[in-house]
């Protein structure tokens, strides 16, 4: 298993300002790097997977636009899971910082985009009324947060490392430790939910959900490496997790004058 490699960026693709308007459609999605809808090793997908072919449509204004969020949507503790639900002390567990950039496929940072995250506590228990795992709820841990990326696409938050937990798939299926991520981008066609895993976790290669991903490199890109340089000595370790959303075509020549 290789943890996420640093993102390679072609300097020509990484200019701070686009050289032409980028409101063409998004790059066609490469489905070979995504899990298929029907993945019988993950049993819940069997009854919940469409069986007809998806209908491919050119991106219209409905797809290249998407909701815009701002700092007014967030509260001051939203990116601090150690403090945002604390009642009488800090939550139990390994203190960690998770940080990285939201990029698009051209390597540009995606600025001012909403990133939401949620996870189990250090014992592998979710604060959710439907979770019945015997590990205890942590009274000081909610398990969710959110952040807005900065002008370069950078985000960070603080939390405790989630624990692995058993789930009903096979009788002895366990989820590797993971954090769920929800990301928007600039257009609704970039909308993405994924999960971040931790370098070195031995449950990764046997996870029925993670192994729905057919492409090994794509799977490795979900594994965050330990980033000692970003850790805070005597306080928190750090993990680095970059997220790549679909790139967007530039409009080099405008052939039509009507409409938008």
């Amino acid at each position: 298993m290789n943890a996420q490699a640093p993102a390679l960026r072609d300097p020509r693709l990484n200019s701070p300002e686009p050289f032409t308007p980028r409101d063409g459609g998004f790059f066609q999605r490469d489905h070979t790097i995504h899990p298929p809808a029907y993945a019988p090793g993950y049993k819940s997908s069997v009854l919940r997977s469409p069986r007809q072919a998806l209908l491919s449509i050119e991106n219209s204004v409905s797809e290249i636009t998407g909701p815009v969020f701002g700092h007014n949507d967030l509260g001051p503790l939203d990116n601090d899971l150690i403090r945002n639900y604390a009642k009488d002390g800090d939550p139990v567990g390994e203190r960690i910082i998770v940080h990285g950039r939201v990029l698009d496929e051209t390597g540009r940072g995606v600025p001012n985009t909403l990133v939401e995250f949620w996870q189990a506590n250090a014992g592998g228990r979710y604060r959710h009324k439907k979770d019945t795992y015997l590990a205890p709820i942590d009274p000081n841990f909610g398990g969710c947060g959110r952040a807005l990326t900065d002008d370069t696409g950078y985000y960070y938050f603080r939390t405790v490392k989630p624990g692995p937990y058993p789930w009903r798939n096979f009788v002895n299926s366990w989820r590797p430790a993971h954090i769920h991520f929800s990301v928007f981008g600039s257009g609704f066609a970039q909308r993405l939910i994924t999960q971040m895993y931790f370098e070195g976790d031995p449950l990764i290669p046997v996870c029925p959900i993670l192994t729905t991903i057919p492409d090994k490199d794509a799977l490795d890109r979900l594994v965050a490496p330990l980033d000692l340089n970003a850790s805070t000595p005597f306080d928190s370790l750090a993990y680095r997790f970059d997220i790549v959303l679909r790139g967007q075509r530039s409009i080099y020549f405008e052939n039509r004058t009507a409409g938008n």
């Binding site: 959710h128 969710c144 929800s182 794509a218 799977l219």
Partner: peptide, 21 residues
């Protein structure tokens, strides 16, 4: 080389999606 990045793979939102969203 073109050096485009690859989109991050999707994963299920799971049964506890409500916690985060």
């Amino acid at each position: 080389p073109l050096n485009y990045l690859k989109e991050t793979a999707s994963q299920t939102a799971g049964p506890y999606v409500h916690i985060g969203l």
